[in-house]
Computed example of a mutant assay.
Amino acid sequence: MTSDQDPLAVLGRSPYVSLTTFRRNGTGVATPVWAASDGAELYVWTKADSWKVKRIRNDGRVVVTACDARGRVSDGAPSAEGTARLLGADGLRKARGLLARKYTWQFWLTDVPAAIVRLGKRPHVGIAISLRHPSRPA
């Protein structure tokens, strides 16, 4: 499998990914997010009280698909199943650093004003996603 076919490499380069998390009844809920890859995982940064965080606490199963800013998925877009885990403070710093490096000024334009407005009242959490690699054809 070449790096161009590796789901982590492809999804890590995508400007946005649709992160599908699952309700208790098994219904998937997709949300477009920024994601950056490092090593064998994708990293996402979100508000700690978001519904996706609550769903991940209940069920770490996720599906990640390349999408546009509105979450629209094109036919044939790369997609992979995986497992998400919530990160502590060190993991959050790592996720923010990776996202800041990938999205540069866009990240800072979003992060700094939001931090000023919320005055620490809505903390964020990092999410690490380990993707399952599809089996190679025989």
Rank of each mutant, 00 (worst) to 15 (best):
Pro7Val: 02
Ala9Val: 15
Gly12Met: 13
Arg13Phe: 00
Ser14Ala: 15
Leu19Gln: 03
Leu19Ser: 01
Arg24Gln: 01
Asn25Leu: 02
Ala30Leu: 01
Ala30Ser: 12
Thr31Lys: 01
Pro32Val: 13
Pro32Ile: 13
Pro32Trp: 08
Ala35Asn: 10
Ala35Gly: 05
Glu41Gln: 12
Val44Cys: 08
Val44Asp: 06
Lys47Cys: 06
Ala48Asp: 09
Ala48Arg: 14
Ser50Leu: 04
Lys52Ile: 05
Arg55Glu: 02
Asp59His: 00
Gly60Val: 00
Arg61Gln: 04
Val63Asp: 07
Val63His: 02
Val64Lys: 01
Val64Arg: 00
Thr65Phe: 12
Cys67Ile: 10
Arg70Trp: 12
Arg72Ala: 15
Arg72Trp: 15
Val73His: 03
Ser74Glu: 15
Pro78Leu: 00
Gly82Thr: 09
Gly82Ser: 01
Thr83Met: 07
Ala84Ile: 06
Ala84Met: 04
Leu86Trp: 11
Leu87Asp: 11
Gly88Phe: 02
Ala89Arg: 14
Gly91Ser: 07
Gly91Glu: 04
Leu92Arg: 15
Leu92Ala: 14
Arg93Thr: 15
Ala95Ile: 09
Ala95Arg: 07
Gly97Glu: 11
Ala100Asp: 11
Tyr103Gly: 11
Thr104Ser: 09
Phe107Thr: 01
Trp108Lys: 09
Thr110Pro: 03
Asp111Val: 07
Ile116Gly: 05
Val117Asn: 05
Leu119Pro: 05
Leu119Trp: 11
Pro123Leu: 02
Pro123Gln: 05
His124Gln: 11
Val125Trp: 03
Ile127Met: 04
Ala128Pro: 06
Ser130Gly: 15
Leu131Asp: 05
Arg132Lys: 14
Arg132Asn: 13
Pro134Gln: 02
Ser135Trp: 10
